[in-house]
Design a protein around this nucleic acid. Sequence first.
DNA 1: ACTGTCTGCCC
DNA 2: ATTCTGC
DNA 3: GCAGAATGGGCAGACAGT
Length: 876
Amino acid sequence: MPQKTLSAFYGKPKSSPNAAALRESAPNPLVPINVNFIAEKVKKQGREDEAVQQKKRRRLARVVEDSPSNNTIKEGDDLEDDVEGVILNEKSKTWAESESEAVHCSIEETCPAIAGGVEDGVKNQNTWVAVASSKMSSIPQLESFSEAPKKVASIFMKPKPKSPRAPANKSTSAASKPDQNEGEAGQDAGVEPIVRIEAEENVASPSSVTAAEKRVKADVGKVEGVGLGALAAASKHAAVDVDSVVGGRWDKDQPIPFEFLADTFEEISETSKRLDIVNLLINCFRAILTTTPEDLLPAIYLCTNRVAPAHYGVELGIGEGILFKALSTATGRSEQRIKDALKQEGDLGIVAVKLKSTQKTFGAGSKLTVRGVFKAFKDIATSSGKNSQKVKEGSIVKMLASSKGNETGYVIRSLQAKLRIGLAEQSVLTALAHSFYLWREGARDKDGRLADKLEQASQLVKQAYSECPSYDVMIPALLSHPMEELLQHCHFMPGVPVKPMLAKATNAVTEVIDKFQDSEFTCEYKYDGERAQLHVLEDGTVMIFSRNSENNSSKYPDIVQRVHKALRSDVKSIVLDTEAVAYDRDKKKILPFQVLSTRKRKDVAVGDIDVQVCVFAFDCLYINGRSLLKCPLEERRAALYSAMQEMEGEMQFATAKTSKDVEELQRFLDEAVDGCTEGLIVKTLCDTYEPAKRSSHWLKLKKDYLQGVGDTIDVVPIGAFHGKGKRTGVFGAYLLSIYDPETETYQTISKLGTGFSEEVLQQLADCMTPHIIDKPKKYYTWGETLVPDVWFDTVKVWEVKAADLSISPVHKAGLGLVDPVKGISIRFPRLIRVRDDKAPEDATSAEQIADMFRKQAYHKTEDVKEQDEEDGQEDE
DNA sequence: ACTGTCTGCCC
DNA sequence: ATTCTGC
DNA sequence: GCAGAATGGGCAGACAGT
């Protein structure tokens, strides 16, 4: 089962293991399974053999499921494998959900009803009591801690039949927590704590959900399979008629049920074959197009985890924090409990599905629709101000309540903007192109050229999107005009950011020569600042976009102001590709990225800018109404040089050199590094601008890419974090330290999450797990906000590569040596190799780190450079 | 008004 | 950002 | 080689809580 799939958790026929089997099938060696507290606790007693333990567990409590609508727990019910674990927490007067927050009380006093069945060894331990089962649909609320015994007893002794309540009414329940339904709790043991809601925009007409016999009568009717060329190999999904995709789940012109999208996601998650993934999405889009085309736009947004084009600056503002809260409210579990579950499952979506699946819901299925979910997302994104967090939480809870099965998981994953099903922007664009083509032209391969045509359509759509990255523009254009006309409606123009061209990493100077062979190439300094795409519109408006197409115009009013001065008078409109770099005007020196990043970001006034920037221009993409994207770099650069005049320290051309000589290239790279830049970007002169592509026409040449060159640090792992997603079950990241012989302490220097293959990742986990210790050693120093899930003894030394060293607000390496209160950290840390030849005390020392920091080009004064040379001699 | 936490966005 | 991986 | 998914440091801004 692919890790990313949710299906196992909501009971697809082929894989619906019960909770226990699931735990069996996916053991996590790193996380003690803390779901079954009873089992855990009994194990800890450690004296009895397994048979006695089982007996004890049975005697603790038992559960039976009378019927789906009458989930109650009686004394003697068998909880054995379904115990969810509920512990009393005196502080919060709630049911704690981990041992760590459990109050110590005896079973006897808490729950005399079951204490009788517990042997003295346990009863007198004054520890904890587990009372709930996954089959128990509600946990009684506590008003005071002292009433706990009564409530617990009432569950066990006097179960009341589940008494269905009318769904809460809309206005009051949006933000209401289960505990606001106090007083009824005792009688409501059978009522799920989730807040249910009738939300008109989320409700499809009942008939569309239930009338399975109603078939779609789409205009296009049955569409024949593609089954051709490259697609033939994966035509399993393409050769499908739209009717069967729709499966009678909704009618023409009816809102697309969110369930349909979630099911598509689920199917996609089950394969890693890209062709299959795209085909599944094509079928999904075709179904939407033939029934309810107006729902395509929201569907696309849900597929790409956005709510608006990037340059609109609309963000969800949802992260794990709020999701923990929302899930807690929706499921009645504590946040801690959900966090623990996340560590075990490695995905909050899976956690949500699992929690939800243990709750019985009323009524028919989900009422979520694609447009309803999207609208909710938009509302979440636009809510701000006081109490906005609560409002956001409320609408998430609402969606969770209306969701069922895998929908729950995909609502959560969408909110995290991480579908992690192997589908992202590029696949969506391909699917979009194909589905539109098939929708318009039909799937019959009339002339044997269908595969080509689909590929063409895909290129067209991708080009349109990189030139005009807005589905708000593109989808309507596709819907109301022939595909061939797409570029007339979606094309590059000042005011809308183009996806910037990216560069690829190279490992050696010779690789550059290798890749570019005989074509002429040019090198530019790679400035360490922020990508800035400058747009000057015909009306004189200046706009600035970031690498990710965010609108940064209000962040750089100083640049906006100076652009006109730098442009020659005949320039009416222009788009420049530049890097904005922090700059010290007095010393005429480039400043590090870390300085630039302290600039204010919103509504900056020119008057109170404290970090000045110099703009280094290196490309011209548009001038006076003409796109230069299709022109060779040589021409674009000529346009740049003639359109702009340099203003020292404000707007300059990127330092460049054209050469074919390896040694000259090497020298230029050294110069670049001395000049406080990251290295070089090497570009062919003959190639066009390729938006969004990390093409091999631009190469990144950085010192730290070169093997055996660049800063390397020997570190000691002293902690680790549980992995998520495909790293579930191993450590996803490690906490690294260096050794300070002066103070005899290990000081954290950074975390580490890349540079290991899956195999190594597993090896490291196996290797380090035996060295887990209960609590950090006294001689560790770390940041309070960076506490790892597990601590290690100091046993290993790893070699890690760094691009730079920085002064850290959280890490402690070399504390006091460079900054009185801050330590040093690593920029872009990655694992190079395990150093089995070194002992932890031989790790890089605090003094060495401080030295490395001081020697970075940015900090080099003339004296330090001299010092360097001396050091160099000493080292020999 | 201050502080701590979460989030998004730079790299 | 860097790095790894399946296709 | 592409596309996607793991993961890093560190900053400002927005809120919530005090």
